[in-house]
Design a protein around this nucleic acid. Structure first.
Lengths: 194, 194, 194, 194
DNA sequence: ATTTAACCGAGACGGTACGTCTTGTCTTATA
DNA sequence: TATAAGACAAGACGTACCGTCTCGGTTAAAT
């Protein structure tokens, strides 16, 4: 019998423990202390990890944030399809609001959007790995049949998610569920056959 | 006859020159170097002003930014009323897009929104002195007569401005004029009598 | 008859109140807060005087200190002559020790000597207006008849005052009265006919 | 067999290069620019060292000065014993004068004495680590046999070194060699059997 | 009685040093 | 060779004081 060893590199292998610890430390710090207090030193300390280890695997704080939120985001932004288009949109708006205003992953996402305003590199990073768009497109595709006048994706996504996102970025509380329902129905009327 | 002298306090009066210089330096630095490179030291140097002079009149960088954009914003976001509601909305969306994507004042505003994600104090500041809402409400009031189903201000403002703002914060280019027109008409349909 | 009016300058004359207030503020601050906390700003505040008023009459903090101690020093360092040379020297050493270790004027003098180590201009000032030498020379002149081998003034003054001054500058407490007596008698033996 | 490993703490060890560089920079700056111009920033720059590195190992400028002079002082203040007591005292007075008026280490010492007049903490520091006393005591011990009436160390050291120190702190030039000889012989007469 | 000029207090001005903080790199010993 | 610990150079931070300037107001001699 032949043993099929993977051609492992020499030396000590990457510590998955350290990897996870960093991502969790970022989430924790973000929730406990806020973004401003979240320094590289602090992350390393909280994670029980050497500072150099962080720089070895991520170039910038933004990359850590992105990795810290992107997986959770995919999961949290999945709304189960509903038969009724209004319900479908509403369900999505509800999970989106939850993500943006409650979830630690959403907190990381907002921090990332914030950093993007200060640093073009982060802006690029955020555009290449957009967190919201795929889930929004999935919903739009489902309701497209009953929304024949839906504009091109660019605008439709902005109309769907923009009000919630800008609200989450600027105002203190989330839009109420009732208003989310109003928004969903407004979109359907706007996109209905003329 | 009684002379009504103002009870001016003693001491050298505040230098309006220094005040203006700081606000202009902030705008210039933001455009030339970007937010990340905009340090207090740099502002003081660019303005030809002592560092303490800045701290005397503003507590934080955010306060300078706010003052640097709030006046320009009021002016730039004023769209002349149009007879046709669609034109009215469209005209506003056009100046808003210009503000958010081209104007230095809009650049300052976006930097401020960014900082608000990192610092709760800035978030409060931004909520108390919101830059976009007043101009948006002015337009909404004008079209309200032909939009009987317009929801409460909170949501209506978000529907009107949110797609443009979130777009400006995340994506590289502005929405085209054509899409702005589509957005305006969509809003009117959404808000039309059922 | 010719009137010999002083050619007084026009304008408001110098305020003697402010002059006194500054000198007293310096003494008070030195005693209450210590030299390090004695800033120009603090002196002006304590004296209830404008900052510019201080700079109008004194160029440096050292000049204020000098004026604050030089008069008191002349008075405090006057020891009444004694018939016995040993008593004469001892009496002077006693008032000198008191001046150097207890008197506010001596505190100012030590502060000045300290500043002289950091600033050549203060060193010059101190050399031109030496505070200790005149009083020391007065005593030396009185005992010279019974001290035929007293060296030239330069060294004799240093031998008389140096041990006390250096002690006051470096060590915590003053030399005891007993030791002052021993020092006085040692000097007389050193200066006695060989 | 038991290995006696030192329980070294982990992490990068202190850089001896930086340590030396700071001490040398202090000496250089003191000689080149004077104490007043010797800032922490300047020391760091001259030494090619981060500012924090200085604060990591020394609390105050005074501690740096002390370390910068204390080793040199020990070396420079060592006068080889002479058979003749007068020669012995004279040799010490000569090296002491050289230290106080010419040597960079002496310059640092004088700056330290100056700072001690402004800051009680420096005064304490200087008392605990007195620079002159040990060398003076060494000489006094050697001549004690021919100076039976030498007073207690406190006063004897002050009589020996005080005139030179106070002279160095206040007057421009050093005492001449001739006067040093006179001083030495005066001390021996003062301390001779009555 | 006005005018004039130097004085006075208060306090803002442009600078600069302070001591602390964070960043990204480096240098150890250990695993 | 990856790791945790931690020292390193660099430089921004907000505070304090420096000496100058700019006010409105006061005081007294010269008009």
């Amino acid at each position: 019998m032949v043993t099929l060893d993977l051609p492992e590199k020499p030396g000590r292998p990457r510590s998955e423990r350290a990897h996870r610890a960093v991502l969790e430390a970022v989430d924790d710090l973000l929730v406990d202390e806020g973004y401003a207090a979240m320094t590289m030193k602090g992350i390393a300390l909280r994670a029980g990890v050497g500072r150099q280890t962080i720089y070895r695997w991520w170039s910038t704080k933004a990359e850590i944030l992105l990795e810290a939120c992107v997986e959770d985001a995919r999961e949290e932004l999945h709304a189960p399809p509903c038969a009724d288009p209004s319900d479908d949109l509403y369900a999505y708006l509800a999970v989106l609001t939850h993500f943006l205003t409650v979830s630690p992953a959403g907190l990381a996402y907002r921090a990332l959007v914030g950093e993007a305003q200060h640093d073009p590199a982060v802006r690029d990073l955020l555009q290449r790995a957009d967190v919201l768009t795929p889930s929004a497109l999935a919903v739009l595709d489902r309701v497209r049949t009953v929304a024949p006048d839906m504009p091109e994706n660019d605008l439709a996504v902005a109309q769907l998610t923009g009000p919630l996102l800008s609200r989450a970025l600027i105002s203190p509380g989330p839009l109420s569920g009732e208003l989310l329902r109003v928004h969903a129905e407004g979109l359907l009327r706007a996109w209905a056959e003329r």
